[in-house]
Amino acid sequence: MDLISSLLERNDLLFAFVVIAAMMLVSGWLSKTLTRGRLQGSAVAIVLGLVLAYFGGVQTGGEDGLADIAVFSGLGLMGGAMLRDFAIVATAYGVDLQEIKKSGVAGVLSLFLGVSLSFLVGALVAAAFGYTDPESLATIGAGAATYIVGPVTGTAVGASTEVIALSVAAGLVKSVVVMVGTPLIARFIGLNNPKAAMAYGGVMGTTSGVAGGLAATDKRLVPYGAMTATFYTGLGCLLCPSVFYFGLYALLG
């Protein structure tokens, strides 16, 4: 047993390929038998991955889901930011630039609206839970943008560590619900063309959420959604600790 686990730990990336392939096989089968193909195999696999990540995290107390268990550490490399971005850029091969130009205005607008509305909604939820100081409201609002914007804002405005942790949790929840929710709501919001995908990437902004959600919906939409989502965190880090925080401060200060 030790021999096998040490072999798998030494060849962790290879084992990750096998594990993911097995998950995809099971998911494909579940998709056919349980949902009659209505929910794509990749959508089921992403949900399965998230469930396993939960158990991995609970088991080890770590931050990287299943990858915190030593034999599964290769998943961290396979699903890490480097290879994820590499594959996202590869999906852009053969994309029609006309389509992107045509959606430019909608894309830029979606970014600004996405960051502001996430901030507003997050701050409102925080207010409903009894927070009144502009620092906490801004930090949780920023967390509703992405789990990177939250702590960046929290540190900048001097929020408490407890609030910063909550803002990270809010961002993580958003990324998970976007992954799971996108294929379910795609039909109702007309998410079936490049322009809608660019708008979607812009309003959601969470790169992992959009990457997973669009993969589970229609892989051909990925490059368009990723294109705008990639600007979101930067814009959020720019606006939340400055303009938006001062706005809140002036309002409540």
Binding site: S42, G49, L52, L75, G79, A87, S208, A211
Partner: peptide
């Protein structure tokens, strides 16, 4: 390889912390 990579990404998310939030 995009979809397999995204599935690997999903399985390495910090879901436990999201739930405890």
């Amino acid at each position: 390889l995009y979809i397999p990579i995204v599935i690997a990404m999903a399985s390495t998310q910090n879901v436990a912390e999201a739930v405890t939030g």
